[in-house]
Every structure is written in C-alpha cells, then in structure tokens.
Design a protein around this nucleic acid. Sequence first.
RNA 1: GGCACCGUCGCCAAGUGGUAAGGCAAAGGUCUGCAAAACCUUUAUUCCCCGGUUCGAAUCCGGGCGGUGCCUCCA
Length: 482
Amino acid sequence: MPIVISDTLTGTKRELVSIEPGKIRFYACGPTVYDSAHVGHGRSYVVWDLVVRHLRARGYEVRYVRNFTDVDDKIIRRANERGEDPVKLAARYAEEFDEDMDALGNLRPDVAPKVSEHVPQIVAMISTLVEKGFAYAPGNGDVYYAVRAFPDYGRLAKRNLDDLRSGARVEPGEAKRDPLDFALWKAAKPGEPAWDSPWGRGRPGWHIECSAMTLAHLGAPIDLHGGGKDLVFPHHTNEIAQSAAAVGDGRTAESFCRHWMHHGFVEIDSEKMSKSLGNFFTLRDVIAKFDPEAIRLFFLGTHYRNPINYSDAILSEAERRLNYFYETLEKVDALSEGISPAGEGGAVVEAARRALDDDFNAPQVLAALAEAFTAANALADRRGKKSPEDRARLAAFARDVREVGTTLGLVQRRPAEALRAVRAKAAARRGIEPAAVEAKLVARAEARKARDFARGDAIRDALLAEGVAIMDGPQGTTWKVE
RNA sequence: GGCACCGUCGCCAAGUGGUAAGGCAAAGGUCUGCAAAACCUUUAUUCCCCGGUUCGAAUCCGGGCGGUGCCUCCA
C-alpha cells in the first residue's frame, strides 16, 4: 500500500516515492529563534512529528533534519534592544524551543543544524552560484540571486514572474537587476554579527541557510521538504531556485526536492495566529494551563492542511477527551493485568494505518479510536464476571490503542499518572485546592456511611458548583474537574 | 489588483464521482440511595446559493455570495 500525500509542487495528491527504496530524507523548516514559540509553532512540529513517526512505523528509515535559524534581522534587532549577543539570545530560545517540543511529545530531529555553524557551507554555495552564473555581486558587498536564470522559478507557488513582479519592491541601497532577485549574502552593517567572505564581511540572506543545511546534512536531491503554508513564497520558492542551481540540473525543482508538504495555520477568531498581528499565545503559557498531551490531541483533531481555530473551550474539550482515554485505559488495564492479548493487531491498527497512509489523516484515526474505546468500555462495564476471553479482548484493545498511540504520540503515559497530571492542571486553572476537595470527600463519605444522604448530596452539589465532579465507584469516590 | 485556499448537523470535524465518519452538546433509556462516569437509542434525504456535466456530485465545470492566506517577516 503506497503512502499518498498532498504535494504542493504538483498541486495534487500523489504517492510519496522515495529516491532510495525504504529511505526518506526529510527536511522541515525550523523556527527563527528570536522569541518564545507560540501555539502555531506547536502545531507545525506536531505535524512533522506525525509524518516522521508514521513513515518510521511503515518501515522507512527516515532522516529528519530541522534547522534553527539563529542569524536573522529580527534576532539582531531583539538582541540590540536588550544589549545581548544575538547568537546567545538565539541559543537561549532554541533551548526553550526544544523544551516546548519535548513537552508536546515531539521526537527530536536527527540533526538540528544552526545557521551560525554553517556559514562556510553557505559561502561555498553562494560562490558556486556566482560561478555558474545564477548569482551576481554588484560590488556593494551584497550578492543576489538572478531569478531569471532559473526557468522553473515560481512553480511551487503557482506564480509566474510577471504576477510576482507587480508586487515586488526594492529596498533603498540594494542593487538588484530585477526586483525579484533576492539577497544570498548581505554586507555587514555596524553592530551586526558578520563573517568574512569573498565579497567582504557580511552575513547570509534569509533563504540560503536552509538550502546549505539541507545539502550539508541530507545531500541532494531530498525526498520531502515541509513547512507552513506561509513559506511557499518566497522562502521555499527561493530555496528551490538556489539549490537546483547549485547542485541540481539548474532547471527543475525536482532536482533539489521531490515532494513538498505545507500545513495550515493556527487561527484565533479565524485569523492567522502570528507574531506580527500580536494575536498569539506562547506554548509556555498554554502548557501552564492545559496538559500538553491535550494540546497535541487538539492539533491532531484537524487535518494538517486545514486551518485550526484555537480557543480555551476547544482545548478543554480535548482535555476531557484525553481524560476519557486514560480513564478507559486505567479500567481496562486493571481488568486485563497479566493477561496475554487475543490475536494479532486488530482492526483499529489497520484502520489507523490506512488513514495515515492517505495524507496523514489523523482525524480519521481518532474516529477509529473512538469506536474502539466505546467497545472497550461497553465490555469493561458489562455486569457480571469477565470470562478469560473477555479479558484477552480487553488486553488486545489496550495493546492496539497504545500501538496506534505510538504513531500519534498519544496515550503513552501510565494512566494514573496522566490522570493526576491532567486533573492538577485543570484544578489550578479553576483555583481548586485538591486537599480541600479531599477533605470534603471524607466528610461526605462519613455522612453517607451514616445514611445521611441529604448532607452527602449537599456536599456533592457544593463541589459541583465549584467545578468538581465526583464519581462513586466500587473502589471509593474519585473526582475530577469539570 | 495578482495568485491560491476554504464554506458539511447547534458547535468542532472527516469525507475529492457511487449515494453523508467521528467528537462535543441535546433528548430518552440502562446502571445508581440520588448522581456522575460508562454504555444503548435518537438527532444532516442533505453538504453557502444558482446553473451545467454525468446513470449518479458534498465531491467535476461555470457564475454568484461569504471567509481566509500569500504577494513584506512569519510555522
């Protein structure tokens, strides 16, 4: 069964065909680290994590490279504002980024290269482009890429040079032959980090770093390149032009990379979440409020290509759903402890694989899981003693769900611990004191033991008014935050 | 202005030619001292509107209306 993706390069859904059988060389555009990551970054890298996990589950040897852009105008500006060294500031945010990604359950990439550590490769690549006639140095210390030299220019973005030219503009001081030409190398300005080059001291332009780091760590051509939809133009368009000119045939986008995937944005009130609009939440802030696995579940509930609206309400819904998953698993684990599962991988595993093979359709996997969970609960809660066959089926459910969860990066924690963590966050959010709740539950238990149901119910209703729901079970009373 | 994308139940959301997944919410039921949770049942002859193609369209084509993104930094 082939894996099918929506390929931006062709604008169609088509089979992902790797250059070397069984191997995928994958590059995801990483963040520019001048500030804390926001929810939009979280979505982006959960998407790429899903892609990598599924490809690996399907037997591919995936080499996953994701860069840090740590040399950039915004980093320099931010560092100057704070009187800090730009490279150090970037390093700090890169570390923070890694922590956030870990919290979301994303696997680390195999390589996470930084621009500041690849300047020699970048200079070498620019030199090649100049030698081959794809780039020119007008003598002001800048080097520009000559867009007209690359016949496939703009194909990824489905735009031709005339369309683009109407909107292009040239900054004062630039010496471009064509307004669409873009800087590969920028002459150093005072107070900026700079490196020596054949064109004088300066620093890399925006797009060249990804090209150079892709070639340094994956070679060319690569199989798959990913990023947000906002990177299609100009970033990826220019990457293709540079790379195909430097190491490919100089004519076609495919000589650099075969397949391109782009995901949709996280939105607030149906508007793109972005730094410039100021309508963003940092991952740190959201993780402080909601369990990161609930955030991940929220991301996976919408197909990666579509926009996804962020709100506290929808995150609460994801949190309740996560609770349901872990409560079910806790119950099923208790009933099937030490039992060997019935049969081989079940229908859920197969359904999940099919859904992910079809352009990484995670929402469809969640739908398949929903049916499995319902069936497991029905069996677990059925009255009467469980037969050995029932227990084996429950064990099989737990095994299958966890296997699917491995690919999604969900339900890998121990249920009791996850439930406690989720509850703690929800309680903190609502200003609920767990110790106070426990004390009230003791009082209620005493009242009920004395068959004073009126008093017991009064305590329960008071807790519910605070947002605490209580469940009486055979093992005693448990509670959670509504 | 140019180039794209999107519009599916009260809400969220799959589905890209074969007769509308799933979740939340809602209603009824089972269970329960009463609840909660869980489970069962019910809830879109219909997919923004109007035409067209087709044996057949939410899915393809044309036109409208509405929303968004990119064209400048952006995941």
